[in-house]
């Protein structure tokens, strides 16, 4: 008696749980059919977290028209992405820089041939508070003096005067609090900023290519905007599109990469005049593009007008028509 009651009290909830799970499973698998055709029917995209939104947007649009394909897009970073790509684990690798020589070597060792397609441009905006009238334009040297590895401990802009003069910047900064809010080291935006603005000067100075360690870092762009707008004499950097969206609370500074001050906008970034910008690529595995129809179709879509539109939709700068046609030609002529 005792036994029976005990056993039943265990059974009933168990059956309920199993039934629930079964229901959940069957409702999800209505569209699934049992056929599995090896590697095709699926696309694996990995690589740069910056390019990820474009690839994800295109994957989403592509999947709407082709509900049977499996596409996964993630963004562990350009370097990690190439490691997977050159081992043949992914079909497409997103990249926010051209492939490096040692990565080419890995790809060659593993017999992975690829085609490189430039798909857009990402601009970085250096931002300060809208209340900051003292600063309008900064050179790379200025940025190095204010946020480079040697600037650690500078609490006021003018603390950087000597260093700025030494590296060839203006060396004449306002005597005001310097509060910096920017993405942390684990982010791709940090990497780009350091590579474009700081790396060259850091090398000349015999320093590691890093930003100073003592700034407020956040993985959330909103927090960076809050931090920068929260202090009148702040400094920071975020992606161009996000800075544009918040142009009422933060001011985008002009940047001088050696050829005069340029303000970031769609034209100056697309034309390459604005120096704090980088090209975005996708690398497609040639063997997969030839053997896996889904990969071919997906990249075809990527290079179509609808695919091109995604670039601007997710906040990056569209290539000029000429450059876009060059990418399309590279894909067609693979």
């Amino acid at each position: 008696m005792h036994t029976h009651r005990g056993f039943r009290s265990l059974l009933v909830p168990l059956v309920l749980i199993l039934a629930l799970v079964g229901a959940a499973c069957s409702s999800g698998s209505e569209s699934s059919d049992s056929s599995s055709d090896g590697g095709s029917g699926s696309v694996a995209v990995s690589g740069s977290s910056t390019v990820e939104p474009i690839s994800a947007a295109n994957a989403e649009k592509f999947a709407e028209a082709n509900p049977d394909v499996a596409i996964s897009v993630d963004g562990p970073g350009t370097g990690d992405g190439f490691q997977l790509f050159c081992n043949g684990e992914t079909d497409i690798s997103d990249a926010s820089r051209p492939i490096k020589d040692e990565e080419i070597a890995t790809c060659e060792d593993n017999g992975v041939e690829y085609v490189e397609l430039k798909v857009g441009i990402d601009g970085l905006s250096v931002i300060t508070s809208t209340a900051n009238d003292a600063v309008r334009c900064l050179t790379f040297e200025d940025l190095y003096a204010l946020v480079g590895p040697e600037s650690e401990g500078f609490k006021s802009w003018s603390d950087a005067d000597d260093l700025g003069t030494e590296v060839g910047g203006s060396g004449d900064y306002p005597d005001a609090d310097l509060t910096i809010t920017a993405p942390g080291e684990e982010s791709g935006t940090y990497d780009s900023f350091v590579e474009i603005a700081l790396e060259g000067i850091a090398e000349e100075q015999g320093q590691d290519p890093v930003a100073r360690a003592d700034y407020e870092s956040s993985p959330n762009d909103n927090v960076i905007i809050e931090g920068v707008s929260g202090s009148d004499t702040s400094l920071g950097w975020v992606g161009y599109a996000f800075a544009q969206e918040n142009s009422d609370t933060v001011k985008e500074l002009e940047i001088d990469g050696g050829d005069g001050c340029v303000a970031p906008d769609d034209e100056t970034i697309a034309s390459g005049e604005y120096p704090l910008a980088r090209p975005l690529f996708i690398y497609v595995n040639k063997a997969e593009a030839a053997g896996n129809a889904t990969v071919t179709d997906y990249v075809d879509f990527y290079m179509s007008d609808a695919g091109r539109a995604s670039v601007a939709e997710v906040g990056y700068v569209d290539l000029t028509d000429e450059e876009w046609q060059a990418s399309v030609a590279a894909w067609d002529g693979r």
Binding site: S29, D33, S35, S36, S42, A59, P67, D68, S72, V73
Partner: peptide, 21 residues
């Protein structure tokens, strides 16, 4: 586990999905 805003498993059955994203 994928911390991304998009992925699709297409028509993969549940058993295949066990090995998937």
């Amino acid at each position: 586990a994928v911390a991304s805003n998009f992925f699709t498993s297409g028509n993969a059955g549940y058993l295949e999905q066990l090995h998937g994203t």
